[in-house]
Design a protein around this nucleic acid. Structure first.
Lengths: 141, 141
DNA sequence: GCTACATCCTCTAGTGACTAGAGGAGCAAG
DNA sequence: CTTGCTCCTCTAGTCACTAGAGGATGTAGC
């Protein structure tokens, strides 16, 4: 009664590209599905859910290894979920740091662009600021 | 009168790692410096400035190709700097978008972690939210 | 049954921006 | 003269895919 979903349909439904699905199978993130008589992959709804999980986690910036750990957790429920929590927390810290440094960068780009007098390259603030970190408004990034 | 700076010293002064300096030379971002009798690279202060420029631009997230364009501009001043301005503006837009999506992500991670009841994986919000994008607080990322 | 054409298969190689390691040569201090 | 650091070239590995070749299979219309 498995749904026998082709890779193309699985791709459309999950939003994961066809070669990427094959890649996930290759690296063992997605179990190898059974094949049809014509050697085509036959996915089922469980595979689709797993693909959606992976895609969402990737969009959130989790690395493949983190996703692998998360999937393993999902495969054996009934364990304490401290591991999942720890993975999410680690990711949160990364994200917060990345936001801070991007904000500093944005300010710097703003100043650069604002003060560009649209003259010759010789007086261009963009080039000047890049050439000399000391001219940054935010020393830390 | 050139300073004859070794690659190790150039690395320490510019903050660019030794193999990375060699890599930049290889891809033509940094001109090949003259060599000493013992076949070692002899950089000068101009190379150091160029390395600092590259490093700063990389920290700001500019891609190598963008840096290549910026360096070409720097090499021929006296041209209008509209190109540099355009490159910086494009980067600013990217950065702003990235900040927005990271903020959405942070909120989602916060909710995930907050509502994790530290119970079993079966009830874990982290896993649950990842498995179902519909549970995101922010539908767009 | 036949013809198009879409979809699928495997396999290899390429991307960006490095990073790591092997194996060897040069150089400076004690 | 030996020790140990720095340097050289070269190849291959990283991550997460992406692109393309070359061929097999499935499906819709006639």
């Amino acid at each position: 009664m498995a749904a026998r979903i082709s890779i193309g349909v699985a791709s459309r439904r999950s939003g994961v590209k066809v070669p990427t699905i094959r890649y996930y199978e290759q690296i063992g993130l997605l179990p190898s599905p059974p094949r049809t008589d014509g050697n085509r992959r036959a996915f089922d709804d469980g595979d689709l859910r797993r693909l959606a999980f992976i895609r969402h986690a990737r969009e959130l910036g989790f690395e493949i290894d983190a996703i692998r750990a998360l999937l393993e957790l999902q495969d054996n429920p009934g364990q304490p979920c401290g591991t999942a929590d720890a993975i999410a927390r680690a990711r949160l810290i990364e994200v917060e740091q990345r936001i801070e440094s991007l904000k500093a960068l944005k300010d710097e780009l703003d100043v650069m662009i604002e003060s560009c007098r649209h003259g010759k390259v010789a007086d261009c603030r963009v080039i000047e600021v890049l050439a000399d970190h000391g001219k940054c408004t935010h020393p830390r990034h």
